[in-house]
Nucleic acid binder design. Sequence first.
DNA 1: AACGCTATGTCAGTCTATGACACTTTGCAA
DNA 2: TTGCAAAGTGTCATAGACTGACATAGCGTT
Lengths: 209, 209
Amino acid sequence: MKAVAAPRRERKKQQTRDALIQAALALFIAKGYEQTAVREVTDAVDVSERTFFRYFANKEDLALSLARDHTDALMRELAARPLAEPPLVALRNALHAAVEGLTAAGGALTGDSAYLSIMKLIEATPSLMAAHLRYMHERDDEIARALAEREGVDPVTDLRPRCVAAVFSGLFISANREWRYAGGTVEAMLATFDACADQVAGALSGHWT
Amino acid sequence: MKAVAAPRRERKKQQTRDALIQAALALFIAKGYEQTAVREVTDAVDVSERTFFRYFANKEDLALSLARDHTDALMRELAARPLAEPPLVALRNALHAAVEGLTAAGGALTGDSAYLSIMKLIEATPSLMAAHLRYMHERDDEIARALAEREGVDPVTDLRPRCVAAVFSGLFISANREWRYAGGTVEAMLATFDACADQVAGALSGHWT
DNA sequence: AACGCTATGTCAGTCTATGACACTTTGCAA
DNA sequence: TTGCAAAGTGTCATAGACTGACATAGCGTT
């Protein structure tokens, strides 16, 4: 009668989903991902374990759900970059915009923003790290397609989109290692990425002497 | 009284380990990684399930054991490249040498070499893919150190080693996708890698028009 | 020939994940 | 309003990957 958009049922679902994510992340950060049983999460939200697996394919899926939001933001920002920017510049700026947008919206559980907390959790947990890497590399194709469209080249014939997308992933993953060092900051990560991006073209050709 | 190197006990261990690997890979290739229970592997070799986990930390560990050999070969070949070769060239040549060395030594279970079989298995199995990516990216540091030493730069101060190592991983992972397409060949993979390596420096600066 | 260390087997139990089936709630319509 | 069908949940049973504890068998030594 009132809400056109959200039937009550949908709202409750979203509510349960959010509650699961929030409870899980709090526990993961407090006592570690591996050390937190799914049961503990569902108990905190008062749903059955079975329900958990109806919302998330598995434990990793939940832990990475926020990381996915971050990647989504990156893709949106990339699409929004002016066409005047060449590929690597556009990627660099999109990354900055995405990260800054996310750190602003921080769920302050600890001193860190939600983004920082998740990234540190992932970086500190081998199984999450693995899943996250797979997810990121799966996005390579999407990035390649976006770049090809920007530059007006054929994404099948021309290897450059794929190539630059792969390089971007590599550099981003490398920069993400900054989280491992205690007190890793968003600024340090972005600074590392930028420095690499600036030097990469030169470093790839010839000797360094 | 005779063998200085290998006491009988050690030989038996190696033998069991090899048997487990071989039986497992045969089963994985025949019916898929996820569809093969550890129990089936241990039954084939006639050891207890518990023993399996004393040899391998987990199922993935076994599946990736061969992939690890391949990465080891890459590192050895890299160390063997003449210093006259600049970083990216040395990496490229090391990759060629490593891959060719491995495809030669093929355990012919199917028509593919052991190398090809494993890579296709990994590429087709999400959980293995994730674990493999993590493993490869963990090697980035090692590659960076090797490059720094080759070029005589400081691996801490200078970002270029880390940077080029990251790019190499990205490109190699990208090239590895070739395995996904039915009948992917070693040649196709290497050709893709080479083409990317040739274009990458140019593609990173400016527009592509 | 007896002893100690090491590899292996057995067993019990935890945790993730999934299928089957019953029950409750919600949305919609007669 | 009543009532039905669909969607969401709970419960139960089960498979499969691990892990710790403890007993046993086997090699390697003295």
